[in-house]
Design a protein around this nucleic acid. Structure first.
Lengths: 152, 152
DNA sequence: CGTCGAAAGTGGTATATGCCACTAATTCAG
DNA sequence: CTGAATTAGTGGCATATACCACTTTCGACG
C-alpha cells in the first residue's frame, strides 16, 4: 500500500496549508540563509520598509498576526540593530517601527536573495500557477469565517 | 492611499502562504478550542491514528516536518497521555508511535469539531474552490525545489 | 475636570518548527 | 569479524505565533 492510500492527509484544508507552508518556507529559508535572515524576518523588514514608520498594530493587522507575536518576532531584529521603535508623539500608546540604516542595507542584501528564490519558485511552479495560488490565498485570507457556524 | 496600494504584500509566495496559514489556522484552532487541542495536534493525532504504529521518521516525512520538530510537538501529547512510543523490536533505532485509549477517545471528540470547522470552511470558501486549493497546494508541495537555482 | 471603558503594547507561558551536535543502533566494506 | 559510514532520534537553542493578564494612554461623558 502506497502512502497515497492514506486518507485525510489531503482532506484538511488547514493541514494541507500548513504542510505546504513548511515545505515552501524551508525552500525560501534555504535560499535566504546566506543573509542570516529567515524568510519571516525578510518579510517583516520589507513590511516595515514599505510602511510609513508603521505602528505595531498596523503591521500586525497587515500580516494577520497577533500583536504580541509581532512584538516577540521583532525582538531579534531590534537586538541585531536592523529595526528601531519609537513612541508616536501624538499618541504615546502607539509604538512605531522603522528600519535603521543597517536594517535598510540588510534588506537590500536579502531582497536580492529573495528575488532568486522567487524567480526559481515561479520557474518550477509556473508563473501562472503561482499567481493563481497567491490570488486564491489572498481571497480566502480576506474572507470572514465567523467563529462556530454550528458548534451546537 | 488604501492598504491595497502597498506592493509586495501579495507578491511573495511564501509570505502569502504564511499569512493564509495564520488566518486559517486561527479559524480551525478556534473551532477546535473546546477540545483543548490545537489544529496541529488534531492533525498529528489523526496522522498517528491512520498510520500503522508509524515510526517517527515516517510521520515526519508524511508531514514534511523536521524530525526533531516532530519530537518536540509530540511531547505535550505524550505528557497528556494521548500518545505513547515504543522501540521497534526489529530495529531499536526506530521509535514507533501510537494512540493510547485516552488518545483515541480524544481524537473522536476533536474530529467532530474538525468536521464542523471543515464543513463551514467549505461553505464559506466553496467546496470546489477548497478542493482546488488543496490540489494545488499538494502539487506544489510535491515539487522539488533544488536549493539555489543560481545563488551565484 | 474626574472617572470609566476602550485601545495599544508588554511579559509570561505554551506550542510549533528548524538546525546542529551528539548518541545509539545498523549496515557494509574489507 | 571489525571499523567506517549511515540511519533514527534526542536535547539544546532560537525563532514563530498565540492567548491572557496587566499597565499605560486616550477619549468620551457627566
Amino acid at each position: 500500500m502506497s502512502k497515497e492510500a492514506l486518507p485525510g492527509l489531503t482532506l484538511c484544508n488547514n493541514a494541507v496549508l500548513r504542510r505546504a507552508t513548511r515545505k515552501i518556507g524551508q525552500y525560501y529559508d534555504d535560499v535566504l540563509a546566506p543573509s542570516g535572515l529567515k524568510a519571516t524576518q525578510q518579510g517583516l523588514l520589507y513590511q516595515i520598509h514599505i510602511g510609513n514608520e508603521p505602528a505595531m498594530g498596523t503591521i500586525a493587522a497587515s500580516l494577520i498576526m497577533d500583536l504580541s507575536a509581532l512584538g516577540h518576532t521583532l525582538k531579534p531584529l531590534i537586538r541585531d540593530g536592523y529595526v528601531e521603535t519609537f513612541a508616536d508623539p501624538a499618541d504615546r500608546r502607539v509604538k512605531r517601527v522603522r528600519l535603521t540604516p543597517r536594517g535598510l542595507a540588510k534588506l537590500d542584501e536579502v531582497m536580492k536573495l529573495w528575488q532568486i528564490a522567487q524567480r526559481h519558485f515561479e520557474e518550477v511552479v509556473g508563473k501562472e500557477q503561482a499567481e493563481r495560488l497567491r490570488a486564491v490565498l489572498d481571497d480566502i485570507t480576506a474572507l470572514d469565517f465567523d467563529l462556530p457556524p454550528a458548534t451546537q
